[in-house]
């Protein structure tokens, strides 16, 4: 190879390097963008998998009791009857009622859980401990404070108590992890009593005052409030 050809070859290689240097960042951006479009986040993927707890048309419609805030006293809870086709499987049933609780009542002012929170998973252990795994929004969007955090947990526990008798205790996880507090105050390292008749210590109890059922929502809530729904005894 003479010097002339060598020069041409080197010039060609240099041109390839320059073109690659210009094109590579564009290619990188393109790959990243397409990856973002095609691959949902881990939490989105879990939501898609777990929120699918569709009602089976064969399941009978029942009056489920949902514990949202009372319209008379925002710090108290009030049971509202909602027609739902609930599964007989306790895990599916728990998912259905918790998703309904998260969806909120007609009057959004009476929500007890943030609108952007989602149930990621629900498990039921053989000893009757229900494990509810919520998205991070449950912690970041629940108003900070002892009263508001207690109300959020109570609404979950009482709704499960009223509709899924197999659940005796409740453990709340955030994005699959145990966290110290819900939003800075309420202790989530502990178990909460769900079924006060069946649950055995060691557990923590809960104790918000309970308001009577709202007018027009009496059918399922007409039954006497369970013992757990009374203010905590001291």
């Amino acid at each position: 190879m003479n010097g002339r050809w060598r020069t041409r070859l080197l010039a060609g290689l240099a041109a390839v390097v320059v073109i690659a240097a210009i094109y590579f960042p564009k290619l990188k951006r393109k790959v990243r963008t397409s990856a973002e479009i095609s691959q949902p986040s881990e939490e989105q993927a879990r939501r898609e998998l777990t929120t699918a707890a569709p009602a089976n048309p064969a399941d009978p419609k029942v009056k489920a009791r949902m514990f949202w805030a009372s319209d008379e006293d925002e710090s108290a809870l009030s049971p509202i009857a909602v027609d739902l086709a609930l599964s007989t499987d306790p895990v599916l049933r728990a998912k259905q009622v918790l998703n309904t609780l998260l969806a909120g009542p007609v009057n959004s002012d009476l929500r007890t859980l943030p609108a952007d929170a989602a149930l990621l998973a629900f498990y039921l252990l053989p000893d009757g401990t229900g494990v509810a795994d919520f998205s991070e929004a449950l912690g970041t969007s629940t108003p900070s404070g002892i009263q508001s955090e207690q109300r959020a947990v109570d609404s979950i526990a009482r709704t499960l108590e009223a509709n899924v008798p197999e659940i005796k205790r409740l453990k709340i996880l955030i994005h699959g992890q145990e966290v110290d507090t819900l939003a800075g105050h309420l202790d989530l390292t502990q178990l909460f009593i769900v079924n006060t008749r069946a649950a055995q210590p060691p557990t923590l109890s809960y104790g918000l005052p309970l308001k009577p059922a709202a007018a027009g929502a009496k059918s399922a809530a007409g039954a006497p409030a369970p013992a757990a729904a009374k203010p905590a005894k001291r």
Binding site: S75, Q147, S148, R151, H185, L204, Y206
Partner: peptide, 23 residues
């Protein structure tokens, strides 16, 4: 000492823990 996000403005509540297992 805490100030809440919710509740009737002008009210104050005191909290203690529910029963804990003695370990």
């Amino acid at each position: 000492l805490h100030i809440s996000s919710t509740g009737l403005p002008g009210t104050v509540r005191v909290y203690a823990l529910p029963d804990l297992p003695s370990r």
